[in-house]
Write a protein that binds this DNA or RNA. Structure first.
Lengths: 244, 244
DNA sequence: TCTAATGTGCCAGTAAATGGCATAAATAGC
DNA sequence: GCTATTTATGCCATTTACTGGCACATTAGA
């Protein structure tokens, strides 16, 4: 074959990278045969890959060969909007946990993920991150009464929070009384393992905090809200929070 | 320009995708101008992208245009070995937390990440995940005495665990007595917020559990160990664990 | 009906990619 | 030091895939 189309060449290049990853050592003669190209063309392709930053190493002479060094690649990963958001939030939360195994590289991963976003969307992601805070551990008495919220409820809450929709909830207060109110979920606070919503409460016309596990039902209300600055809320919950 | 090199065309295609992502609506005349190609070539390029699976939609007639539908992409993300491992572990741990905001898509993200690995490395990752377990919350009395371990120590421990090296530790027992022993870190258990190592203890010649925050010093010993099955360890710690 | 937009078929020019060959350069074994 | 093996580079003729231009079809709004 004398000439190849753009797509064929793209596929050939991907196959080459795959081959290099699948074995630690290759001779050009074997690669050439696998790809069905001449040795000259193979060398050109390898040179281009090197120039593009692939860590390709080679050794000349008897017993030599081509090697792709140890970096693993997560390529062509396609995530949608919400998946990316969850991924980044997960990492931010993990980082705040200060677990002994994971702290070393999480910052770098987050940075890379962040930079993988198209420029225009970065500020949107960064704003979202600012709306989630990690607090200290909840006290033992608080935890003992912890109830995992229904999954269907959680989805409404998550959507309302992310997309800034109003939310109508049935809420059971500390004393056990149940009320129905419309809230705007501005911020989220995690006091492990309890999640709180810091919201504008249209019933009381004031900022309130709601324990998510005490929300018995949640329905999205069509109206959108715009964010209030965090200072409007900061007085209403216990200290020890940190913005992520 | 009559003809373009493979690399120029690759860059042009990437730029086109970038443009489509940056604005919700484009007219072909504007895209054509941005890319510096003829309208005919642009249409060909768009057709190829569609065939390759990009969700490109278009509307004819007055007021029409080209639109890339809503999926965000995290492309060309290059992470190294340890970064990928940490990323996957983070997601697994987050999933086990059952937080109301994040559970819905984490499984899908994990799956995609996992499948982004080269075939041969998947089993390695999967094995590593099996060595980390998430337990219940630690009791309040345990937590109250929690100390964040030194960062330099954590790094040794993490490396020894990941790479299966022996580890010499100075350990302070419950009673306050300090001993030095060589251990093999086979499994990790998280009872929030306390991390434990389930290890073979060469001092006692038996399986033991060590609280990571009670490890005062840690040095890697050159010798590698091979994994023992989890059944050999399962009797020695409190119930309520789940493998991730 | 007119206008503005996407979509398609055809053709000729050309530059980029290919393969082949010769040769350099480095390494290992003897 | 000699030989075999393997990566690396330069040059040239061939060819073919890409491009632009033009004409025209198709769709939708004003």
């Amino acid at each position: 074959m004398i000439n190849t189309s753009f797509e064929q060449r793209t596929e050939r290049r991907n196959r080459l990278i795959g081959l290099l990853r699948s074995e630690t050592y290759w001779k050009t003669s074997d690669l050439r045969e696998q790809l069905g190209v001449s040795q000259r063309t193979l060398m050109r392709e390898l040179a281009e890959l090197k120039r593009a930053g692939y860590p390709i190493e080679s050794e000349r002479g008897r017993g030599g060969g081509i090697r792709l060094n140890g970096r693993w690649g997560v390529n062509r990963l396609q995530l949608n909007h919400q998946e990316v958001v969850e991924l980044i939030l997960s990492l931010a939360i993990m980082e705040s946990l200060q677990s002994p195994l994971l702290t070393s590289n999480l910052k770098a991963i987050k940075q890379k993920l962040f930079q993988a976003f198209p420029q225009e969307q970065r500020s949107a992601v960064s704003n979202l991150r600012k709306r989630i805070m990690i607090g200290s551990n909840a006290g033992a008495d608080t935890v003992s009464r912890y109830v995992t919220p229904e999954h269907t409820i959680s989805e409404s809450i998550a959507e309302a929070f992310l997309e800034q929709y109003g939310l109508e909830i049935d809420y059971e207060s500390d004393s056990g009384a149940q009320t129905t109110r419309v809230i705007e979920a501005h911020y989220i606070l995690l006091n492990w393992p309890i999640w709180y919503i810091t919201a504008w409460d249209h019933l009381r016309e004031d900022s309130r905090m709601f324990r998510i596990d005490r929300i018995k039902n949640a329905r999205i209300v069509a109206s959108r809200f715009s964010l209030k600055p965090i200072e409007d809320f900061i007085g209403i919950y216990t200290p020890y929070y940190q913005s992520i």
